[in-house]
Amino acid sequence: MNIFRFAGDMTHLISIVVLLLKIYATKSCSGISLKTQELYVIVFLARYLDLFTDFISVYNTVMKLVFIGSSLAIVWCMRMHRAVKRTYDKELDTFRHYFLVLGSFVLALLLHEKFTFQEIFWAFSIYLEAVAILPQLVMLQRSGNVDNLTGQYVFFLGAYRAFYILNWIYRFFTEPHFSRWIACLSGLVQTAFYADFFYYYFISWKNNAKLQLPA
């Protein structure tokens, strides 16, 4: 474990806490893409298949349970909670995310470390996570004005993988046989998707203005 990876995990955790706060405090999920949240459930379930078979550390197991539990809770809330599901902007959340699942799975069948069930599902989860934010970013552009909590949620979500890139660079130089080319390349693509959001987020922060994404 290094400081970059720990900062990345904490930033990821903060993004989830901010989203849960928004949904429970405002009893609203307006501006949040249910499709992106559903993709994250698939990402965590596909990546943590070894949750019960291999033990790495208490931290690792606890964080996996938190990520799986929170992503399921958010999807449940947006689909089943009476007050919250009424605020879901279904007509703005129109990205055909099934293609992202299909494309990621096909890519995992072609590009993986080893052709085993766990490695293919792990690569699938890595590719899917890279594109999982797309429905949310498209929805933000459609909905124009972004409320603070939603903006902070997307910001922390983008920042966490940027910390992971620093973690991979650090491990590359400190560990002899370290190679995570799948996670690294995918992480670069994932963080690149946030580039324009980060730009407009920085502008809104600098001008102390509302976050506005160009339609």
Binding site: M63, Y164, R180, A183
Partner: peptide, 10 residues
């Protein structure tokens, strides 16, 4: 065990 060894990241 080999799978998880190099999958120590979340």
């Amino acid at each position: 065990q080999s799978f998880s060894l190099n999958k120590d990241e979340l």
